[in-house]
Write a protein that binds this DNA or RNA. Structure first.
Length: 602
RNA sequence: GAGUCCAUAGCUCAGGUGGAUAGAGCAACAGCCUUCUAAGCUGUGGGUCGGGGGUUCGAGUCCCUCUGGACUCGCCA
């Protein structure tokens, strides 16, 4: 059960994985600048590329090389180094406009039209593969996410894991990794003994068919109420679970039925989110593999009896012992995760194994990984816990037991309804004749996008304070903002196309894209691929969310400042359409990597 | 008690390996729709980056310390 208890932040800043070593220096302007500076400074081009900064104001240049680090070795003031370096930059570099030495910086002003064209064309040629690479080719990443509990409602906490995992799946796939998506269902434990007991007493067959999880939750809650009066029920539940574990056919059949019904209901949510899994082995799947794990730990002399239980000591790592077998001989959460990790390695031979599970379980995973390491599994170091914060109300936690929760279904419903309202109003104001199917489709996708966006907006370590007001506010940094921007850009391209005006570059002087707005957009395009890579390395989709949002903001400024279709010359119109094309496809790709589906109009 | 994490604008958050004047969104206020979609754009106000030390050319960023908060710590999952 991945959502037993919840608490806030640990894990901040822990990288999910170092970049693999064979990373190539990309061909881009930073590399070009590094090439110019390599000779004069005697530094490695890759190091220079890394040092390059963007000045705080575009009037100060497009790139800055800080000379401060050279001051010690060169025994000169940074400002003097900058001036000296400037003299060594050859004249007549086509992509460079000029350089200026100011303070300790050597600032580079790019040839704007060339740069804008280069960045836009790079995106347009890549299309849906913009920002993609083959750095992950031949490598497998297992990502466990979502992991709801059978017979319990799918709430916003699971939505967080689901949104994160889905995005991490897409981002890694974009970088060429083979990604295996695991849904580690909570389908095991005494709770199922309780459910079986409760169902035999109070179960309503019709209700179970109609709304399985609601019915299972109902009888589960009722069981707890009854157990307060009659503690013997708890014993009965334990006995039933033991029968289940021992393979009693009747209990197995009921358990399987609960599982199937729950899975079917989860499936509807996953379909709406466009989420799928390669494997939904739950905790129960790994139970039978535990004896072999225990045996291995015993062979290696790691298993130690303590207070009747069998544990692996982790004192040398400053961690509490990891309990592998309870004093009654039964297995425990950690033993199942040990077995699961080993099975995944054998099955998929992963290069990296990610667990998108809430922060509360940080210690649990530290222990599990440590035990794997001690047991001689060198690949333990490739396992990472990708933690995330708690979803809570401003003043209190969500509580499934008391029904004080936000179910994902309800959240999606509200967002969809709020979206629909805006669409109806806009359509009326603009005199659009959109049919109901289109409006339904749009409100569904925009509403879902809004939900996903809120989960991927900030670093995952942060708690999410749930507020309906914020949730249904579609202004500013939200999915509707980005989607709206995309729809506007697409609208321009459609109108151009309808008028026979297609994107095209021209060498005509009037077609040069050199405005601040255009430069800003080109810089956003330039930064996109690197941001995809950073998001993957840190397992932080919000980096991409922010980048995409910033790009949308830049575009909206541009849109308001300049007329694209009404530009001064036909050549300029076409050149601007190229930029619009590049930006819109980047937005679409970025949104896709976040798990959000773009809309062509709204 | 031990350990982990957090503290930046009224609110929610950004500020990769220390670098130029600490940035967005929301909220507030003032503007912009006969012109490519106003779910948009522009402007204004709002900060001793929790307090105090230290490291150095330079600290929101690194170290120490204090305060305040969240969470975890062998037989639940």
């Amino acid at each position: 059960m991945r959502f037993h208890v919840q608490y806030r932040g640990i894990q901040n800043g822990i990288p999910c994985g170092e970049p693999f070593a064979d990373w190539r220096l990309p061909m881009d302007v930073r590399t070009d600048i590094a090439g110019l500076l390599a000779g004069p400074t005697g530094l490695d081009p890759a190091a220079i590329r890394d040092l390059l900064e963007t000045p705080p104001d575009s009037r100060m240049g497009d790139y800055a090389f800080p000379c401060f680090p050279l001051a010690k070795t060169m025994r000169k003031a940074p400002s003097a180094i900058a001036a000296a370096l400037q003299d060594l930059i050859p004249a007549g570099v086509s992509w460079l406009d000029r350089t200026v030495a100011v303070g300790g910086y050597l600032n580079f002003y790019l040839d704007r039209p060339a740069f804008v064209r280069r960045q836009a064309e790079e995106a347009r040629q890549a299309g849906d593969r913009f920002g993609a690479s083959d750095e992950g080719r031949g490598r497998t990443i297992v990502v466990e996410f979502s992991s709801p509990n059978i017979a319990k409602p799918f709430h916003v906490g699971h939505a967080f894991s689901t949104a994160l995992g889905q995005s991490l799946y897409r981002i890694h796939a974009h970088l060429g990794y083979h990604v295996v998506r695991m849904n580690h269902l909570g389908d095991y434990g005494t709770q199922f003994g309780k459910l079986i007991s409760a169902y035999r007493r109070w179960g309503d067959e019709a209700a179970l068919e109609a709304a399985p999880i609601a019915e299972l939750l109902r009888i589960y809650v009722r069981f707890h109420e009854a157990a307060r009066e009659d503690p013997a029920l708890e014993d009965e539940a334990r006995t039933l679970f033991r029968r289940l574990e021992d393979g009693a056919p009747e209990e197995i059949a009921l358990w399987k039925r609960f599982r199937d019904l729950s899975l079917k209901e989860f499936g509807r949510v996953y379909d709406r989110l466009d989420v799928a899994f390669d494997n939904d082995n739950g905790e129960s799947f790994y139970g039978p593999m535990i004896p072999a794990v225990v045996e291995r730990l015993r062979e290696r002399g790691l298993l130690e009896e303590s207070e009747g239980a069998f544990v692996v000591r982790l004192d040398d790592l400053g961690l509490p012992p990891c309990i592998v077998l309870k004093s009654d001989g039964a297995t425990i959460y950690a033993s199942r995760d040990l077995a699961a990790a080993i099975w995944r390695k054998e099955q998929y031979d992963f290069d990296r194994n990610l667990y998108v599970v809430g922060n509360p379980q940080s210690l649990h995973f530290q222990q599990v990984f440590a035990v794997l390491e001690k047991a001689g599994y060198a690949w333990a170091s490739t396992c990472r816990h990708v933690g995330f914060g708690l979803v809570r109300f401003p003043d209190r936690k969500l509580s499934t037991r008391s029904g004080d929760v936000v179910l994902l279904d309800d959240l999606l419903q509200e967002c969809r309804a709020a979206t629909r309202e805006i669409i109806d109003r806009n359509a009326a104001e603009r005199g659009m004749n959109w049919d109901n199917d289109l409006k339904d489709d749009l409100s569904e996708r925009i509403g879902i996008g809004a939900v996903i966006y809120t989960f991927l907006k900030n670093s995952r370590d942060r708690d999410i304070v749930f507020s309906w007001d914020d949730m249904l506010d579609f202004d500013g940094e939200t999915a509707p903002y980005v989607l709206y921007t995309y729809a506007r850009a697409r609208s321009i391209l459609r109108k151009g196309e309808a008028a026979g005006v297609l994107p095209a570059w021209s060498d005509h002087p009037s077609a040069a894209l050199a405005a601040d707005d255009e430069m800003a957009l080109a810089r956003m395009l330039e930064g996109f691929p690197d941001m995809v890579r950073r998001a993957a390395e840190s397992c932080e989709p919000y980096l991409l969310t922010r980048h995409v949002t910033a790009m949308a903001r830049s575009f909206n400024k541009y849109y308001n400042n300049e007329s694209i279709l009404g530009a001064a010359s036909p050549e300029l119109v076409r050149a601007r359409l190229c930029l619009v094309d590049a930006v819109s496809l980047s937005l679409r790709v970025g949104l896709h990597l976040l798990g959000i589906s773009a809309v062509e109009r709204m």
